[in-house]
């Protein structure tokens, strides 16, 4: 028998964690002064969205979405759609990170640093 708080955490707990993760990511993007850290925070934020979708796709007592012979009941398999969607979202996040790294490489070459203050100072001198 689950107590109230355990029941609550089992029902909705993961939503709090994902939205906390999302806020950490957004906070990091705003507050960090280092562009590399900003890029990492951006990844954290995207992971939050992916975890959110995956938690939407869960079903109690269900198995992975690969059909097993003799088991045709729809309740026996977790939702395949959210998983398929998140594969696409993961690729998008990978692509964005790749472009971000390419941009950072050039910024580091030109400005000699990835700290925001240094970059702004060098930019004003240009």
């Amino acid at each position: 028998m689950m107590t109230g708080i355990e029941q609550f955490l089992a029902d909705k707990g993961i939503y709090y964690l994902t939205f906390l993760l999302l806020s950490f990511g957004v906070y990091g993007i705003i507050a960090c002064k280092n562009y590399m850290k900003k890029l990492i925070c951006m990844n954290i934020m995207q992971v939050a969205a992916i975890v959110f979708f995956l938690s939407l796709g869960q079903k109690k007592g269900a198995t992975i979405p690969v059909l097993i012979e003799g088991l045709t009941n729809a309740d026996s398999y977790i939702n395949p759609l959210t998983h398929a969607l998140m594969l696409t979202a993961i690729v998008v996040s990978l692509g964005t990170t790749g472009v971000g790294l390419a941009l950072l490489t050039r910024i580091r070459e030109k400005f000699g640093s990835v700290e925001e203050d240094d970059i702004i100072r060098r930019q004003n001198k240009l």
């Binding site: 709090y16 906070y27 079903k59």
Partner: peptide
């Protein structure tokens, strides 16, 4: 401010989202 808004989510009860694992 952003983090407070984020915590604001925590104090919401997520009534609009389904219970996890509810088939």
């Amino acid at each position: 401010i952003v983090i407070i808004v984020g915590l604001g989510y925590v104090f919401m009860s997520f009534d609009f989202l389904p219970v996890i694992g509810d088939s």
